[in-house]
Design a protein around this nucleic acid. Structure first.
Lengths: 196, 196
DNA sequence: AGAGCCATGTAAGAGGTTACATGATTAG
DNA sequence: CTAATCATGTAACCTCTTACATGGCTCT
């Protein structure tokens, strides 16, 4: 029933930077615990669950990511035979994978454009896995965005260097507006979160 | 001095969808007029001009895009020999290219996330090439974003279907906040634009 | 003499999209 | 009988990033 498919003894290659899709997979794996979970089940969470509102992940890329996560030792894989159905590859989070996930969950995003995807994912999985860290995550993200907004305001006050001043102001004002909107939204989180 | 490098007579392949980088190249080519412009000069506009605030384009990709635009007949290319310097490939916008550019300039973007890159580019080149269309572009974009904001508000009012209601509300509220911020910014454009 | 500009690229790889391949089972 | 579900992928194709290759010239 369990035939673990991994090279023992060989040194694992150091994992490269993971993207939001891969981190979200680690998050789902963490939710499944020691029982593990297989690819098709994971795919359903992206196509039918609330995760799909945040990120879109086609099955092709999903299986590709799982292979990569396995190759770098962040998850393990073993085949589960079923009488009536195709075999499943059940994946389980390893210690390394869990540490990678926890590290990612604690890092606020640096740019406003990463709020929509990366930060929403962090929020989603922090709520599910380590809800006690919610306040801290929001607070840290808040301070990053505040610093960004300050820096943008400072840049807008810089003297006009040439004829492209209007274009520059346009861009800066948009970025500032988006950052302020994200900040307001962040604050609205803490108040709504209170009564759960 | 001029040795045009293109297949005559052969039917041109229908151009595929172009990305923002390629459209911005068409925009710069349009600004250069019949005199044309060469790759290195274009690269400078991305690294040193106000365009660089909006989009980042490395020389590798820039030359790659130029080849593609030439292949689809949106620009022409001819070599200009220089005594002291390396040869230049001077590019000129064709009629097809100009029509493609004009069409793109008149289309508002459909999603809020495209405001930062695509719409800023449209704004940038409309100001330079067809400033009389500025008001219309802004007005059309405004109506698209207003409809989006309405639709988001409607979705937020939908009854909670399951336990993921809070997550869904979080996502919707962020998208709504970003859309409203873009709308406010859009409105601030018309007022600032008046005295130029 | 060395740095950097001029001008055009290539090479290598990561990451993603879209569509299809397979083959059995179950629901309408 | 048809369609969808289960389960895992492959193939082909874009795009983008990062870094480097080339080779002569100008500036300090």
């Amino acid at each position: 029933m369990t035939s673990t498919t991994r090279h023992t003894g060989s040194t694992l290659p150091r994992p490269p930077r993971l993207g939001p899709a891969e981190h979200s997979l680690l998050g789902l794996l963490a939710g499944a615990g020691d029982a593990g979970i297989h690819g098709y089940d994971l795919a359903r969470q992206y196509s039918h669950g609330p995760l799909g509102e945040i990120i879109r992940l086609e099955s092709g890329m999903l299986y590709h990511h799982l292979k990569k996560l396995d190759r770098y030792g962040l998850i393990t894989t073993h085949v589960e035979h079923q009488p009536d159905r195709p075999d499943r590859q059940v994946h389980t989070l390893t210690g390394i994978g869990r540490r990678q996930l926890d590290h990612w969950l604690r890092e606020p995003v640096r740019a406003t454009r990463e709020i929509r995807l990366d930060f929403l994912l962090k929020l989603f999985f922090t709520r599910r896995l380590v809800p006690t860290h919610l306040d801290e995550l929001v607070a840290q993200q808040r301070s990053v965005l505040t610093a960004l907004a300050d820096s943008l305001r400072a840049q807008m006050r810089e003297p006009a260097t040439s004829d492209d001043a209007i274009e520059r102001q346009m861009v800066l004002r948009l970025r500032q507006a988006q950052t302020e909107a994200a900040l307001t939204w962040l604050d609205s989180l803490s108040t709504t979160e209170d009564d759960t």
